[in-house]
Nucleic acid binder design. Sequence first.
DNA 1: CAGTGGTCTAGACCACAAC
DNA 2: TTGTGGTCTAGACCACTGA
Lengths: 250, 250
Amino acid sequence: MTLWQDIATTLREEIVRGVYPPDSTIPKETALMARHRVGRETIRRAIAQLVAEGLVEPVRRRGTVVRNRPARRRITRSRQVYRDEIGYFFDHTAQGWRPLQTPTVSRGPVPYDVASLLGVEPGAEVTIRDRVMGDPDTRQVKQLATSYIPVEIVTQFPILGQANTGPGGIYDRLEEGGQGPIEWREAISARMPTPTEARLMRLPAGVPVLRIVRLATSPSGRPLEVNETRLNAEEWEVGYPIAREVSAQA
Amino acid sequence: MTLWQDIATTLREEIVRGVYPPDSTIPKETALMARHRVGRETIRRAIAQLVAEGLVEPVRRRGTVVRNRPARRRITRSRQVYRDEIGYFFDHTAQGWRPLQTPTVSRGPVPYDVASLLGVEPGAEVTIRDRVMGDPDTRQVKQLATSYIPVEIVTQFPILGQANTGPGGIYDRLEEGGQGPIEWREAISARMPTPTEARLMRLPAGVPVLRIVRLATSPSGRPLEVNETRLNAEEWEVGYPIAREVSAQA
DNA sequence: CAGTGGTCTAGACCACAAC
DNA sequence: TTGTGGTCTAGACCACTGA
């Protein structure tokens, strides 16, 4: 263990023991330098570790504050798709959210792990639709949603390349064009945010994003779109019920 | 933007553009110092940022390597509970995993966000059961599972405080004791790992853990146990099907 | 065993926000 | 106004590991 790791461990234990409760500050850098008899950068490296863990947050002029993690709110993926006058919603909570900006449409390389879902080569050009969703009153950003659509699909349905795809969005356009009824599959994972995501969603350091990846296919299995939705992982959780149905062997 | 942020942005763009492909190295520190005409610590801070994002990984004697993110493997929470001779399993994949160590049982304060699920005061003493699950052949750790059980439950069912709870585990003991049929509710979120979790699961820096929190209740709604399972979020995703059932209004 | 990244120091100046 | 954390430098030595 190096010096800064020892100091980080000491501070971490004191935080979880409640020596420094949430919303209080840990000792300031000069005090920690004196206590541990080390240079300033050593202290700063220890604190940087705690910041990366999401435990503390430096606030200028106040000190390094112990973060108060709020209880998560639940998003229930109900395995039921809702459609209202705006479009499709995959859970109730998000139904209150609206685009805070006009969706941007661009072309670019498909991310590595989306390529296999879409059935295209890694790095291939696809159409990328970016949406910023949030509370229409407070204008607080709640989730970022990005759609990746193969070029052949956009060639066949040019409106998918437009910012405004009309009522019901791309899914209604695809179904009107004979690709319905669309089937969806979702998976949840997580990763660290890009700096852009962190800025838009006001994510503190050390907070990952929950990542809901949804593949839309035609009944014949043709991949139509991959949607990647990102949420503040400290603020949200995705819930679902478990049916009791014990079997003797899987 | 500060110097180190500019440098981090430049390097990040070069990485995603493919200038430095996965498994290759970015220029070494001395080269970056010369290129950007800054001191070494400035370069190191920029690289530390990319490490925290999970983009690169420093390897001594070789350089700073661009990480190759493997495709995630899917865990399907099938909404169906399986029980075999070992115990209960909530998905197929985990059914092949076994405890790599004897479970440890201790007493300690309940974590903040488990307290409300368990219906106890934040910081109250609970029984904590820790399990390390993994591949029995390679002995690679795949998931960590921690159970939190209120003291009254353990007083009523003392075997829940033992390391070995017998075939079927705590759920069978609770059901034998008249608390069944047990009902479960799950939710998925994510957070940064603790250093202990990172060490056990060999998590590189900048990789969060997927967190599956499961509440077990008796039919009367009495909270019996909260289980927190952690998985490498870069390696795993949790999947489920979506039933097509469009309703006019939610 | 040489070269890479890792740790640590002392010192300087900056920038922000609470008072 | 001022004290806090933020940035940056120059320099020294260490430790691991792959060529």
